[in-house]
Simulated assay, not measured.
Amino acid sequence: MTTTLESPVVPRHGRDLVSPELFEKVSEFCAEEYGHELPTARRIVDQALAFLKVMGDSRAFDMTPSAAVDPGWHSFVLHTKAYATWCDEQFGFFLGHEPGTTVRTRPLIGSVVNRVRAAGFHVDERLWGTAKTCNPPACCGDGDGC
């Protein structure tokens, strides 16, 4: 009988979907524009990139980022040329960010987190408001029960 050891699956990171230079540029913008420390902005942009990849690949336009992750998307989309090129390379279409009336609820955000995780990405639970230790005012502030 042969025993094989399975290697642990290492989650992907959103930051790996863009060049290191673009990741830093967008992260620095996010930090300055939204008043975050740079390490926090990097976490936000990483999660936004993973979210965008899942949404675009699956064309799941019912997805919404948490309030904490949304500034990462805003920061990237404001680098319009780089964002448009990335969208075209990744999906073959521009993934627009239209303001919606979606109310961010815990079940909706939980569904998004599950989809991002199922796609093999690392999920920063604190930024999505799904961490067990996430309690107001320290967490995302999305929806009821956060």
Rank of each mutant, 00 (worst) to 15 (best):
G92R: 08
V77F: 04
H97W: 08
M1S: 15
R43A: 11
L49V: 10
V77E: 05
D124R: 01
R117Y: 04
H97M: 04
G14L: 03
A41G: 11
G100F: 03
L108H: 08
D142Q: 08
W128E: 05
G96A: 14
M1H: 12
G145D: 11
P136Q: 13
D124W: 03
A68P: 00
S111K: 11
S19W: 06
P8W: 00
V45R: 01
V116I: 15
T102H: 06
V69G: 01
P11M: 04
A31T: 08
V123I: 14
A31K: 02
N135K: 13
A68Q: 02
W128T: 11
E37W: 03
G35H: 12
D144W: 10
R126D: 14
V18F: 02
W86S: 05
D142S: 13
L17R: 08
D57A: 09
E98S: 12
R42P: 02
Y34F: 15
A119Q: 11
T133P: 00
L95P: 09
N135A: 09
E24Y: 04
G35N: 11
H13F: 07
K25T: 11
L108W: 05
G56H: 02
P39I: 05
G120R: 05
F91R: 09
A119Y: 10
E21F: 08
T105I: 03
A119N: 12
P11C: 04
A68E: 02
A131P: 08
E33I: 00
R117H: 12
E28V: 13
F121N: 05
E98M: 11
C146H: 06
F93T: 07
V26K: 03
T85Q: 14
R117W: 01
G143V: 04
P8K: 04
E33K: 14
T80V: 09
D88W: 13
V112R: 06
A82H: 10
G72L: 04
G120L: 05
R126L: 12
P65S: 04
P39L: 04
T102S: 06
H97D: 14
E28W: 01
E125W: 10
P65K: 04
E37D: 15
D124Y: 07
T133E: 12
L22Y: 04
W128N: 10
H74Q: 09
G35I: 09
L78M: 14
G92Y: 10
R104E: 03
E98R: 15
A119M: 12
V113S: 07
S58P: 00
G120M: 06
G145N: 10
G56S: 05
V10P: 00
S19A: 10
T3W: 02
V112A: 07
G141M: 06
S27Q: 03
V112D: 07
V113L: 10
L52C: 11
S58D: 07
T101L: 13
S19R: 09
E98H: 14
A67T: 12
E98N: 13
T3S: 06
T102N: 03
T4V: 15
V9Y: 06
W128A: 09
H122P: 00
V113C: 11
W86M: 06
L52K: 09
H97S: 12
H13T: 11
V18H: 01
C30K: 04
M63E: 02
P8S: 02
R117C: 00
V26T: 07
V113G: 09
E125P: 03
S66C: 02
